[in-house]
Simulated scan of single mutants.
Amino acid sequence: MNQVALAFWSNFYDNIFDHPERPSKDVVDNDELLDQWVEEQAKKMEERTNKNAQGGKTSSAYDHEEVITFEQFDEGINEES
C-alpha cells in the first residue's frame, strides 16, 4: 500500500512541476494553496473543453498557410519500359 501511495504522490508532483503554468514554490509547499491551484487548473480545462464543444475555434493542420500532404505513389505506373 505504501508503494502505491508513493507512486501516486510522485506522479502528482511530477505533473505539477512539469505543468506549463507551474505554481511557485510557496504554493507547492502549502497543501491548501496547492489544492486551490489544482482546482483552478481543472476549472480552466473544463472551460476550454466546454468552449470547444460549443463551437469554439479549434486548431487544425489546415489552418496554417502551408500543409504537406502525402499521396500514395505506384512506381510501376510512371516507369517507361
Results as ranks from 00 to 15, higher is better:
L33Y: 05
N15V: 07
R22Y: 04
N52G: 15
N11A: 15
S81G: 12
D31A: 14
N50K: 12
A7G: 05
K43C: 11
N50L: 12
D14L: 14
F73W: 03
H19D: 08
Q54K: 13
F70D: 14
R22H: 07
R48E: 08
G55I: 02
A53I: 05
L34F: 01
D14K: 12
E80H: 03
K44F: 13
V38L: 07
T58C: 08
T69V: 04
I77N: 07
E47K: 07
L34Q: 00
E79F: 04
Q36L: 05
W9K: 03
N52D: 13
E21K: 09
K43R: 14
D31T: 14
L6Y: 08
T58R: 05
A7C: 08
G56S: 02
K44T: 12
Q54P: 08
Q3G: 07
E71R: 06
V28S: 02
H64N: 08
V67G: 00
S81I: 10
E80I: 02
G76I: 02
D74P: 00
D14Y: 12
I77A: 04
D29I: 05
D31Q: 15
E71L: 09
P20T: 02
V28P: 02
Q72P: 11
E47F: 10
S60Y: 02
A7L: 10
E80P: 04
D35T: 15
D18I: 08
K44Q: 11
R22N: 10
E32V: 15
D31K: 14
G56V: 01
V38D: 01
D35N: 15
T49A: 13
A53D: 09
S81F: 10
N52E: 14
Y62T: 06
E65F: 04
M45P: 12
K43G: 09
E39G: 12
V27K: 02
F8Q: 03
K43N: 14
R48D: 05
K43I: 13
S10C: 13
E65Y: 04
K51R: 15
D63Y: 00
E75Y: 05
N15A: 08
E75K: 06
Y13D: 03
M1H: 12
D14V: 10
D18W: 04
N30Q: 07
W37S: 01
I77K: 10
A42I: 14
S10I: 09
Q54W: 08
Y13H: 11
F17T: 13
N52V: 15
T69R: 05
V27G: 01
R22S: 14
E66Y: 06
N52S: 13
E39D: 15
R48I: 09
A53C: 07
F17E: 10
D14Q: 14
D74L: 02
Y62I: 03
F12Q: 01
S24V: 01
